[in-house]
Design a protein around this nucleic acid. Sequence first.
DNA 1: CAGGACATGTAAACCGTTACATGATTAA
DNA 2: TTAATCATGTAACGGTTTACATGTCCTG
Lengths: 169, 169
Amino acid sequence: MPKKRILPYVLLGLINNKGSLSGYQISQEFKNEVGDFWHASHSQIYPELGRMKDDGWLKDHDEDKSTFYTLTTEGHQILRTWMQEPLDDNEELFSLKLYFIKDESDPLLNTLLKEELQIKQTKLDYLQGRLQTVFDTENKIKDNYGHYLILTRAIERESNHINWLKNKL
Amino acid sequence: MPKKRILPYVLLGLINNKGSLSGYQISQEFKNEVGDFWHASHSQIYPELGRMKDDGWLKDHDEDKSTFYTLTTEGHQILRTWMQEPLDDNEELFSLKLYFIKDESDPLLNTLLKEELQIKQTKLDYLQGRLQTVFDTENKIKDNYGHYLILTRAIERESNHINWLKNKL
DNA sequence: CAGGACATGTAAACCGTTACATGATTAA
DNA sequence: TTAATCATGTAACGGTTTACATGTCCTG
């Protein structure tokens, strides 16, 4: 199966968040925090917006030398469906989807948090298992100290994330 | 400038860690812990090993139907130089380089930790600034709750990483 | 009036994945 | 003996970046 494309959904989500955006504004968005978990260059954005309009996900209108895009009804549906698709072990996707939730009372918020908690718990278990099998003696730690460090770091990282998730649930 | 290729250095580091590896063994490595912060498929690995041999970074010898690769003197130098290049805001690279440090007493260890600390501190400052400028009123939090969540999460994440780094220094 | 930001577009190059291929060895 | 694993290779495809291009508007 071909690799799942995310860019169109990112654009859908970003435009939906602001109501309406131009290609240029989207590329500016990626220079702020959105850029921490997703990025696209203008040479990707403009053609993609064109395709999405052709597919009926977006409608556009010109104003002040810019072309602004807004979601169509179909676009809203497609975004909604994508938002409800199960997460995988990819923190960027989790952040992205969270970013697209505007209202604290959106029931999707809790679904996302629970799903992410499940995934991270599984990962933490896996990492702790690795730590015990790979570093069962002091000597193995000494001989692969860097590896030991990043493994323990990864465990602390996941624990921290899990605690945060539990706190928000 | 063209985008910096990392794969050859990853291969250099992995082979150096184990002394000598075949292409197949490398692709197996990526299925274990290494796979948590880097991955490459065999269709990338084999041609890359060939190129690196052509470039004089590696030498090979056949044994048991497999081709094993070892660093040349030049390969060692190139790896060393790359390890000493400054880090950027890319946690995978930090983990990768740590992974390639075998000995706790390697002076590079402290250099890496200090550099990463500096980078993360800068990032934390930036994120805290964003929090204050973007969410200066309660209403803005209410209206972009998901965004607020990921921003505060990012801040906690960086703080946790910074504390870990300080603890190791 | 020059340099930077705004605004959009396309072509080429690059990197990585999936798929297609092949053959040897080993365990059920 | 047949399926799985070992072991390597290459072709096609797709997504992203860099580079090339063009024109406007605003500010110092």
